[in-house]
Amino acid sequence: MIEFRGVTKAYDNTTAGVHDATFTVHRGEFLFLVGQTGAGKSTLMKLLLKEMEPDSGVIRVAGRDLSEITHKKVPYYRRNLGVVFQDFKLLPNRTVYDNVAYALQVTGASRKQIRRQVPDILRLTGLSTKLHNYPHQLSGGEQQRVSVARAFVNHPPLLLADEPTGNLDPDTTIGIMQLLYRINKAGTTVVVATHDEGMVNRMRRRVIELQGGQIVRDEVAGGYGRDSESTAEFGALMRGEPSPTPQRLRQPSEADLFDDAFAD
């Protein structure tokens, strides 16, 4: 899905963005990019979004060499990516519904299609009751859910999340990560950049660690089996609980009810 070969991007002589990065991400993988601030995670994300060009090396996404995409074609390329940011990047003058719909409108989707898909995705992200709210009326976690919904409404093959939980408290973080996990289970490749190494280590997914622009660690799932947990078990992992609870003690949330909708 993603292939980096010898990719280098330097901002100036002193700060290295990314140095000689080589790695491959396969279709359907869930990858964490970890590292301190300034380690090069965001640079990798920006390179993937074609917000900037590498100084050297080749980046391929879905078999396509990014350097071959002309400026005019960049919007069409980006429609195949879902993006989630730390600061949500929602359109402040639009309701939740319109924010999500915008991602479809840019692709020229018909009104009928929008009317069908947007409520669906908002239900899946647990936002059905917030359709007509504006972003500033929502909590951080809800805003991030909108952002995830927008990123996923096109059902892109690849979803990039740059510090998606950086502004959120631990509980909300788990909710967002569960959402991303479910999207991954539906077949979308997910790349999450974060500096929360503790959370990453608990989750037992593939981890690429960056330090000063260099890849210093690339562990595939830490020896654990992949895609074996349900979302609830995944959440338990995230919370750091020793064993997943088979029975739900609390009322199932709306999001949990739609758990299976993504499993094909």
Binding site: Y77, R78, V83, L90, Y102, A103, V106
Partner: peptide
Amino acid sequence: VMKLVGAT
């Protein structure tokens, strides 16, 4: 934001 979502 519009550009990131893929608007021409």
